[in-house]
């Protein structure tokens, strides 16, 4: 990834409005990137099957933070069931920057965690 693309990702990760925790989430999921041990937690507020709010806490790279932020942004207002329909392509499209094969596991971590969210 070149520095120009990375700069956008880096800045997004620093300023994401979706970073944080939801005190009483309706659904939550956690996951880990086995390559580097990075961890991610996603909390959702769900009313009548619709995602009303979403936050993430994350210990990892800027790419996975930004990918999570973009994913959550796209999910708010959608049905929970939508998550299961999302695939790799959808998330890479959201990220917009070229993601090399070596970084796929970083970029796709949020998708894996989002698909695993469970009722609290």
């Amino acid at each position: 990834m070149d520095i120009a693309h990375f700069k956008k990702i880096w800045e997004h990760a620093q300023l994401s409005p979706y970073a944080g925790v939801i005190k009483r989430p309706d659904m939550s999921g956690t996951g880990e990137n086995p390559l580097c041990g990075d961890t991610l937690r996603i909390d959702l507020v769900v009313k009548n099957g619709i995602i009303r709010d979403a936050k993430f806490t994350h210990h990892g790279c800027a790419l996975s933070a930004t990918a999570t932020s973009l994913l959550l942004e796209s999910l708010i207002g959608k049905r929970v069931a939508t998550i299961q329909k999302l695939n790799e392509y959808d998330l890479l499209k959201l990220i917009g920057a070229p993601v090399s094969p070596a970084r796929l596991s970083c970029a796709l971590l949020p998708l894996r965690v989002a698909k695993a969210v469970q009722q609290k």
């Binding site: 990834m1 520095i3 990702i9 580097c36 790279c61 800027a62 970084r103």
Partner: peptide, 29 residues
């Protein structure tokens, strides 16, 4: 505060190959 994976990607742009991650030594990290 740059994550090692991000750093390795950026260095790769400059043809510098380093390793990033836990290097198969999670207890040590």
């Amino acid at each position: 505060t740059i994550h090692p994976h991000d750093l390795a990607s950026l260095l790769d742009e400059k043809n510098i190959a380093i390793r990033a991650g836990h290097h198969c030594a999670m207890p040590l990290h």
